[in-house]
Design a binder for these strands. Structure first.
Lengths: 348, 348
DNA sequence: TGTTGGCACTCATAAGAGTTGAGTGCTAAG
DNA sequence: CTTAGCACTCAACTCTTATGAGTGCCAACA
């Protein structure tokens, strides 16, 4: 059986109409489409053929047809016309970003929230740190009699700080001693290496002082871990409630996606560009009724994270794919500006 | 009509049974309670009286009775026997806290999440900063050629730091100059004073350098604002979905409570101890079907925030009130340890 | 050979009728 | 004051019937 042009037009019309209305599409409706214009009976013959080919499904005998996962796949891979963003839309998105906090931690959280607002889907934003990234610099700054600020700078330019309260007074001697000790032990090591065991070993080297300095060592460990683990933000989880596809499963899905260890592996290892998982195509059984759109973003050449959309299989791919693409690109650009480390020139 | 002892027992039984089952309570059920043991007809007479007094409602003629808001109020204020936490329960909660991050920012977020898990309600945790709190100390630490860490210490002991990336190289001279400038201008002022206008005025004093140093000034402003605004964390919003009371309003409620400017004023000005808002008693019309339990927590003598539960009016007050009380107390204790500033003695 | 009108068939959905049962209010007797 | 008895109410359930959107298949037509 040939997948000829008319079959393609009919499949496209079914997918697009179903996405729009959520109702199974019947032969009469389709026959009235200008790009089809044949009688309902003919459409029925074609639909029977598309059903044979596994591209359509039928909820029950006397209902219209609905795209199968294979049907969506064929539509997305070769039939769909994506609608590129208009300049106005781009400007709208840019404006949303301009007001957001330039702090990279918050940037990602804001991006997840904004993307959710813009697309009506639940979103996820995640960063990953390459395993070759090392600790470049460690500092300890006394803030107050018994409080210090710990500072870790990684070789990829990420800087994290943490307030650390101690049970004793910190004078410059103590600070200098610990600063040197920490630099010697941590700098140059990859973040990946700095495990709980590594930290234990370091702590032991402090001998009788290990108990005293332990909060600081742990603080450094936590900062390193924070940098290495990267971030994981969700946005607009409540959007799932607006789709009746999720009527009673919404809670389960919300719990699932809130766990990085579950969703991370699925969305974290994809090629650049937008990857689409339709229904069962992803490996999480609970998400078999959902589609995932994921896009990687990068700082310059360095791939550094993923943003994704989670919604019902019946989502408007042709609109959402270009949007997600633009968000990922924009996010990369903004992060690049933040992490531009070698600007060099003095302005003041 | 006297609100005699038997009426009280009947009202208590109705409230408790309705909270447990969610179904209107009938005279036959009640007559079988050992503490009532009169015939259904007698119970009906009493119920008619309680209805007259406005303490009960009837969903429809042939249904049992349900407590009115006034009925809940009477129950909570004078009839309810709260169930104090067992030592085991306390230990369980303590254990949950012990594993949590001692960083006060995270402590509050964890507390909200844990409390939600423990109670099955949506939760909110919020800190407030008294208006007399001032900026005590400001520092700027060069981290990297073009990156510095800003540090603000407030007089209530809160320390916040922020990584700030600049478009120019920072040498010690620049850092020293700016440190002195910022200390002179900000230290001693209350956080409340440090508004956008205040910051503009400060910026102008930098004259031709104001453009260059602006990111730093803004950074300080943001840190001060962050300290002054305090925190606002939600936990277990998805718990609302498990109550059929919220079948389709859950989304609306979730959106509402996510806005501090909406919920903050309602829960922020209550006396110490646990305050209960039953249904319409709070000023937000969207929350008329919900009850709020709020408790203040404090560091030593200083009141510093609120934690609260949001759930259906039909919630188990006798269990939840002591739990919330204990969480608030625990939170205060843990924060006190973190913010214990004058420990003084050297341990090392 | 592809297209179309006609027709019998299917089946989800909605509407109506009847039944059930939990619960009430009222009354009169204990 | 308490209680048994009784008629009444009404949501919820079941059963039946009607409706209509949509199908598959066949025969006729271009």
């Amino acid at each position: 059986m040939r997948f000829d042009d008319r079959k393609k037009r009919i499949l496209s019309a079914i997918v697009e109409t179903y996405i729009r209305t959520g109702e199974p599409v019947g032969s009469k409706t389709l026959s009235e489409f200008p790009e089809i214009s044949v009688s309902p009976a003919t459409v029925r013959n074609e639909m029977a053929a598309l059903f044979e080919m596994g591209l359509l499904e039928q909820p029950h005998t006397s209902a219209g047809r609905v795209p199968s996962h294979l049907g969506y796949r064929a539509y997305i891979d070769s039939l769909m016309r994506t609608k590129p963003l208009t300049e106005d839309e781009k400007d709208g998105i840019d404006a949303l970003f301009n007001i957001s906090d330039p702090d990279p931690d918050k940037l990602l959280a804001d991006c997840a929230e904004t993307l959710a607002e813009y697309t009506g889907c639940a979103t996820v934003a995640m960063t990953t740190t390459p395993s070759y990234v090392t600790v470049e610099h460690i500092d300890i700054v006394p803030a107050d009699a018994t409080t210090v600020v710990l500072l870790v700078i990684a070789s990829n330019g990420v800087v994290k700080s943490k307030v650390c309260r101690l049970g004793f007074r910190v004078n410059t001697g103590i600070a200098d001693f610990f600063r040197k000790f920490a630099k010697d032990r941590f700098c140059g090591h990859t973040l990946k290496e700095i495990s709980a065991e590594f930290v234990n070993a370091v702590s032991i080297q402090l001998g009788e002082y290990s108990g005293v300095f332990n909060p600081l060592i742990v603080g450094i460990y936590e900062l390193c871990k924070e940098v290495y683990d990267g971030q994981y933000y969700l946005g607009g989880q409540e959007k799932l409630l607006t789709y009746n596809e999720y009527s009673d499963r919404a809670l389960e899905i919300m719990k699932l996606i809130s766990k990085r260890e579950k969703l991370g592996p699925v969305i974290g290892n994809n090629p650049s560009g937008v990857t689409v998982f339709i229904g069962k195509e992803n490996s999480l059984s609970q998400l078999s009724g959902s589609s995932l759109l994921v896009a990687r973003f990068s700082i310059g050449e360095n791939d550094c994270g993923t943003i994704g959309l989670i919604g019902p299989v019946r989502m408007d791919y042709s609109r959402l794919i270009p949007h997600l693409e633009y968000f990922a690109e924009k996010l990369g650009t903004l992060l690049s500006i933040t992490y531009q480390r070698k600007t060099g020139d003095d302005n003041g």
